[in-house]
């Protein structure tokens, strides 16, 4: 697998993943838009730069591991794994269809590159703790990454895992929070207060790094910083814009669990034109991001 080292290439890949997500969701007719779109930059940083991973050696005991706790963000991870060479890109359009390997939520047994099945929130950090603990027992240096949504911090089991990782000083564990401030029923702080996340994590013995989740260079830096901190587990609080890249989806919690074409929105086109408009914006970046040759 080719590691991308130029920022322009990384940004281009993130944009490709976003287009994949829109096309997959449009084809499927159901699924989540906001989270997958806002995770594109983080997914790109991890799979195309940070992580030691090779689709040809999926069982390499020294590979880095990534566990996605918020399984509803499956489309972005499917797109990432396909673009990284774990399975054919053409297969993406089978998302959520009868007989597909690409289930609505991720299934480890069917999708190459998926480290653990997930969907029910609040479970992935514990699995990641087990992975990091196993690495410590075996004196391995692989890094275990866990992608968490901010909404799932409502689950008590997440705090059990945070407590465990702090207690056992799991130094090779990096949690990344998709802090997009929305969950299904509305803004996170209205549904159930999450803050102060930094104080909470630090009280449990973690080190927190805040980062702009759309600045790929900053995400890569944060991941490298996390590896350099050896006495504690590290959580990267990645601040993201839900629906990032598609103007009429950004910041709107109604897109948490809906695909293009399924939400009446004042800011965007009619339902029947939402998918085409989203793709157009992603092709042109809506004039918002200067990516030179993109």
């Amino acid at each position: 697998m080719k590691r991308l080292t130029k920022l322009a290439d990384l940004n281009r890949m993130a944009n490709t993943l976003r287009k994949d997500v829109i096309e997959m969701l449009t084809e499927a007719g159901s699924g989540h838009s906001a989270g997958p779109l806002d995770l594109a930059d983080i997914a790109t940083a991890l799979y195309f730069n940070v992580m030691k991973i090779d689709p040809k050696q999926r069982d390499d005991p020294d590979r880095d591991r990534l566990y996605v706790s918020c399984g509803h963000t499956a489309p972005i991870w499917y797109a990432t794994l396909a673009r990284a060479g774990f399975f054919p890109v053409e297969e993406l359009k089978t998302l959520r269809k009868l007989g597909t390997r690409l289930q609505g939520h991720m299934d480890r047994l069917t999708v190459p590159g998926v480290e653990s099945s997930s969907a029910s929130l609040g479970q992935g950090l514990s699995i990641s703790c087990g992975s990091a603990y196993a690495g410590q027992m075996d004196k391995k240096n692989y890094q275990t990454y866990c992608i968490l949504s901010d909404g799932e911090h409502d689950e008590g089991s997440v705090w059990e895992a945070i407590q465990f990782a702090g207690h056992y000083h799991l130094q090779h564990l990096t949690a990344i929070i998709d802090r997009n401030n929305i969950q299904i029923d509305g803004p996170t702080e209205e549904v159930m207060t999450k803050e102060p996340l930094r104080d909470k994590y630090e009280a449990f013995g973690w080190h927190m790094i805040d980062v702009d989740g759309h600045n790929i260079e900053a995400v890569i830096d944060a991941c490298n910083e996390a590896k350099a901190i050896v006495e504690k587990p590290v959580v990267i609080n990645a601040h993201t814009i839900p629906g990032k890249g598609v103007d009429f989806m950004e910041y709107d919690f109604r897109w948490h669990g809906a695909p293009p074409g399924k939400v009446d929105t004042e800011r965007g086109p009619a339902k029947s034109k939402q998918s085409a408009e989203a793709l157009k914006q992603l092709r042109t970046l809506g004039g918002k991001i200067d990516n030179g040759d993109l």
């Binding site: 480890r108 653990s116 479970q123 514990s126 699995i127 087990g130 603990y133 196993a134 895992a161 407590q163």
Partner: peptide, 23 residues
């Protein structure tokens, strides 16, 4: 031996993480 404290949800899934990594 891993002392898990009184946190059975975490215990079940730390076990999964260990199992997925050969234990």
């Amino acid at each position: 031996f891993i002392q898990m404290g009184v946190a059975e949800q975490n215990m079940a899934n730390v076990a999964v993480g260990l199992a997925l990594n050969g234990k």
